[in-house]
Simulated scan of single mutants.
Amino acid sequence: MKQVIEVKRAGGDASRVVIGGTLRSLDDYLPRGAKAIVVTDANVHRRYKELIDRYDYCLIGMGETIKTLATADKLYGELLDRGADRSTFLVGIGGGIVTDITGFVASTYMRGLRFGFVATTLLAQVDASVGGKNGVNYEGYKNIVGTFNQPDFVLCDLSMLDTLPEREFRAGLAEIVKAGLIADRTLFELFERHSFEDFRTDRALLTDALTRAVRVKTDIVERDERESGERRKLNLGHTFAHAIEKCGHDFLHGEAVAIGTAMIARLSAKEGRLPAEDAVRVEQALARMGLPVESGIDIRKLTRALKFDKKKDAASVGFVLLDGIGECGIRRMDFDEIDLLHETLA
């Protein structure tokens, strides 16, 4: 059974997140009469060749290092070669890197094409492809160049996760834990009652968790599409996570989010916002899923990277802190406070 979650868009029809058996019905979601061009990577193309070969397609590389303006430039050239115009519809089929790049290119080519996603990883289904943030990295800084622009649809077929490597599946669960901490206590508690293997093998459990997490995100996005206020709560754990990703290359994004979330739980407890026992619960839930809660990177190195986070203003950085399980708030820390984090988190 399909779950359809609609997200209101300014000046247009709602964006739809469809969770369920959607892979065979992609054509039903494409605009009639429009030329569709798929953007994907070689690995996804190999796995879903029969589907992708029905359309004109462009291949990009794999890995975080290709999420750059150079890749966008390559795609602009390929779109021109294929005669893409304002009526062309782009479909990103892949994980978060593919969907980020597709959304960015679609939003900027000829001042904007319509686009949609088929999300093939758990991280993409729960977070990366949902909400309309599209961007590329620049000079080592994550998503520093980008747009806010909602896709027409995001298709989340859970059967595509059957072949997802275990490490990537765990990384996707980190974003679901994060969603529970932001605004759904019941969702978080699923991770205290169930094992990693339960989420891996119980389709009904995973569907429930994924749907709850997507609703947390879409409810916030509807109220604050362009991240002027409440949407910043979705960055829980990400301020530290982006610093971790800049300082080292040993972690997947979801793993860095898990570490960043554990650090925020400890910081929230130190500041008296979160009961100490709840901070322990957060770390235990993440560890229960086999996720890391420590980076091994010197905190002074991380604080230096924090000062260049895209969520900073002239002399401060916004941190999303926990006020309880399922509750959070935003506090800005000036650079002097950030310099002292090594003492607070020691």
Rank of each mutant, 00 (worst) to 15 (best):
G296M: 09
R281H: 13
H194E: 14
T207E: 15
L274V: 01
D298C: 11
A276V: 11
K301D: 14
R304L: 15
A213D: 06
V214W: 03
L181P: 03
K246G: 03
R231G: 03
A256I: 06
E283A: 14
G229P: 01
A265R: 02
E283H: 12
R226D: 07
L210R: 06
D202H: 13
L210F: 03
D278Q: 14
R200A: 05
D224F: 01
V293K: 00
P275W: 10
G260P: 09
E255D: 01
T239A: 12
T186P: 13
D309V: 08
I220D: 00
L252G: 12
D224A: 03
L286Y: 01
M289S: 12
K270M: 13
L236C: 00
E189W: 01
P275A: 13
L206A: 12
L252M: 13
T303Q: 11
F196Y: 15
K307G: 10
T186N: 15
T201L: 14
E230R: 06
L267C: 10
L286V: 04
S268N: 05
G248P: 02
Q284E: 15
A258T: 08
S228N: 07
V216N: 00
F191N: 09
S268T: 03
A265W: 00
F240T: 03
H253K: 14
E197F: 11
V293Y: 03
V257Y: 00
R232T: 08
A243Y: 06
V214H: 04
F199W: 07
K307T: 09
V282C: 03
R200E: 04
A279C: 05
A269F: 04
A305S: 08
D202P: 08
R281L: 11
A213I: 09
H194R: 15
L302W: 05
R266G: 12
G248M: 01
C247F: 04
E277L: 09
M263N: 10
G254A: 11
E225M: 07
R223G: 10
R215T: 01
F308W: 04
D208V: 07
A209N: 06
T201S: 15
D208F: 02
V293H: 04
H249C: 10
L206T: 11
F191E: 04
F199N: 01
I220C: 00
L190F: 09
A265F: 00
F240W: 12
P275L: 13
R223P: 07
L205A: 06
Q284P: 06
A256T: 09
A241V: 10
R212S: 13
I220E: 01
H253W: 11
H194N: 15
G237N: 12
E189C: 12
T201Q: 14
V221C: 06
H249Y: 02
S195E: 11
L286Q: 02
L205W: 06
R212A: 15
A183T: 00
M263F: 08
T261Y: 04
S228E: 08
K217Q: 00
G272F: 00
I259D: 13
L291C: 10
R212G: 13
V280F: 15
R203D: 13
A305E: 05
A241Y: 02
T186F: 10
K307E: 08
A243L: 06
G180R: 02
R300V: 04
S195Q: 10
F251V: 01
L306P: 01
T218W: 01
